[in-house]
Amino acid sequence: MAAYVRSKVIVSLLVLFTVSLVGFALLHLSGDLAATLAGENASAEQIAELRHTMGLDRPLLAQYASWLADAARGDFGLSFFARESVLTMFLARIGTTAILAVSALILAIAVSLPLGMLAAVRPNSWLDWMVSGVALSGQALPGFFLALMMISFFGVTLRWLPISGSATPLHYVMPVVVLAIGAIPALMRLTRSGMMEVLEQDYIRTARSKGISSLRVMWKHAMRNAILPIISLSAVQLGTLLGGSVIVESVFAIDGIGLLTYRSIQRGDFPVVQAMLMFVSASYIILTLLADVINAWLDPRLRQKSQ
């Protein structure tokens, strides 16, 4: 197991390095950062001077090397616009986004697992059709539309929930629900198809022939096998959610990672964008690694293969 984790970590670091290099290069080639920074009325001399003071006239690799050296020490530089440390800006927002992301994923799993399981036990029943219907409409409904409808109904008409900001736990209810609804369809369908496949297996028949309760057959025998791909998918979804949702954060006026990234891209705030890129890729990599480890722990066959 230790060797397995070690090899995965090495690969992960290589991936992270590649992402940082490619990201850095693309961001610098995507436009003239000095011109953006200097503003529309700046003269050619002013732009050239700014480029020199910012070090943007140095070779790309040299710029990358100094960025990497700083980043390795946890210094992601200053935002071009906010004149604030990128790390400070990030830390101020990650809490909000993480609460949203984790709650949305937990809600999504809490809904998807039981419904997907029930649909798998009774294929083509009304429940199965309902599950498929919910999955389909969840996928078809754009997040911004759902968010606006919820605001107008629960926020404006019923006045049950606050509609903007992140001051109290109540503020999180609607954004979490919208994010969860985005994650539910894939999870629910994977649970259903995975369970249906597992329930066809010989060892389920064996378990049934032992006279144990059907709940135990479902949970202990079937779910333990069907959950492996669900864990992998959940890891990917949490990664996406941690990157922040621009739509949900804008509609509910939540100052999180998604909105910060979006604004920074718009303004060409390169240090912030590069840092966010690193954060999102690092979360994906760590979460997939975590999913692999959990799966190996749950499935002895994976454990053995890795030795």
Partner: peptide, 8 residues
């Protein structure tokens, strides 16, 4: 080969 649950 398949009648026993692989993860228990």
């Amino acid at each position: 080969m398949t009648a026993l649950n692989p993860v228990l």
